Structure formats: C-alpha cells, structure tokens
Amino acid sequence: MEERRKEEVNGVISILVVDENEILRRGLVSLLGEYPEFKVVGQASDPEEALSLANQLQPDVVTVEVRMPGIGPGTLISSIQEKSPQAKTLIITSSDAEEDLFAAIRDGALGYVLKEVNLNEIVSAIRTVARGETVISPSIATRLFNELRRGYTDPCAAGESDLSPRELEVLRLVAQGAPNKEIASRLFVTEATVKAHLRRILQKLRAGNRTEAAAIAHARGLIE
C-alpha cells in the first residue's frame, strides 16, 4: 500500500494487462515497460485470474481483451470494477463487433481500441482513460457515428433528443471524467441539479450510463 501511495505521488500509472493470447499479452507488457510513467503490476490470461489480480493489486488501469472464454465482455468489465472500483478499463481487442463495443461501454469501459493500432495510440489511450476520459478507435468511431446517425434521425427531427446548452455543458464535463460534485461546483449549481440534467441527457440520448452518453455525443459530434 505504501508503494502504491508513492507511485500515485510520482504520477506513475499502474496497469493490469488481461489477454488470453500469451504472445500479445507479453508483447504489450514489454512495450509498456519502456515508458517510465507506466508500471505493469500484473498480467492475466483468464477471467478468474484477472478478477483475483484486480482485487489484489488495485491498478489504475486495466486493459482487457473482450473476447475472453467463458464470460461475456460486459460481465468481465463490471466484475473487474466491483473488485477494483477506482480502476479505469480500456478495451484493447481484435473485435470490431458493435455488440462488443456497446456491451463494453454500457458496463463502464472508458476506452475501446483495436489491436491493429500502433503503440503510440495505445499509449495515448491509456493516458486518456487514466484521466477518466473516453477514447474509441477512429475506425470504430466512424462506423458508430454512421449507425447512430441512422438510428437517431427520426428522434432528432422530432426534437426528442435535442440537448439544451446547459445539458451540453454537463455532458462535456462528463466526457472529461468530472464527477457530479465537480460538475456542480464548476457550473455553480447543486449536485441534485446535475443529477437531474444527467437523467434528461441519458433519456434524450437513449444511453444506459454516463460513459455511453459521452460516447454517443462524441460520435454524433455534439461534443469534441
């Protein structure tokens, strides 16, 4: 615990790498080891080991391959967060299936990047989710945008999902990883007001949680 406090002071991001493919897992661990700001504290090849290490190590970031045997992507992510509530989950996967993306977002993942991206993009994604912000691979974001645009054309035309300027302000802060208390302070409103805005945002965007709302807003170009 004392070592972890020192790492936090020094700004080191502790990482748990979860992937059943040993070659890819060890390769990522080796590459991340070249960055002084990162410390890979553990690696897991199956869900059971991942949950045990998440509970034991309490990492800042957990990188996860969603296609793990014996467990769905959403279940694995939510289970990791139960074991390590402060950990930010970044999906690094070979799957570009929309059902995997939406399951990951719904259950709390902050990032979703494909293994085909270069190392710099993975490093950037880890830094982003460690700050509590969201990131999605450009190729997936483009396809997601097109799907959402088709799926939300009618509600938008009817004015059912138009966000007010204040709701957009709240959504921008959510996308930056700000908790309700900080949002309330920055907008000079109460936390109850922030929660009310969030309820309306989720309803208008048909999102299951704040992370999914931020992803939808990014995909639709509502926020940068």
Rank of each mutant, 00 (worst) to 15 (best):
T93Y: 08
Q56C: 00
L51T: 02
L16T: 03
R106D: 11
R172S: 07
P85N: 05
G221Q: 12
T93H: 08
P73H: 01
L144N: 00
Q58N: 12
R143Y: 01
A219P: 12
N146A: 10
R127M: 08
D100F: 14
E82P: 00
T128N: 12
A44G: 05
F188K: 15
F188L: 13
A215N: 08
K39W: 08
E2L: 12
P69E: 04
I23M: 10
L53G: 02
L76D: 03
R5S: 03
R210I: 07
I77V: 10
H218P: 02
G111Y: 08
F188A: 14
L163Q: 10
A217P: 08
A130W: 13
D162E: 13
K83Q: 08
L53D: 05
L163I: 09
P47G: 03
G74K: 03
V29E: 10
E7S: 03
L101C: 05
V170S: 02
E191S: 12
I77L: 06
V17D: 11
G111C: 05
E3P: 02
R106H: 11
R127C: 07
V64I: 11
E182I: 12
R131L: 15
L90W: 10
E37D: 13
S84N: 01
T63D: 04
A213S: 06
Q203S: 15
A196F: 07
E98G: 00
V64K: 01
V17K: 11
P69M: 01
A44V: 01
I136N: 02
G151E: 11
E133I: 03
V62H: 01
Q176F: 00
V41P: 06
R106P: 00
G111K: 05
V9T: 09
L222F: 14
G208H: 03
V129P: 13
A213M: 04
E49V: 06
I183C: 02
Q58P: 09
K6F: 03
E133G: 04
F102H: 04
P165Q: 09
I126Q: 12
G33L: 09
A214W: 03
V129R: 14
T93R: 07
I23K: 11
D154R: 14
S164C: 05
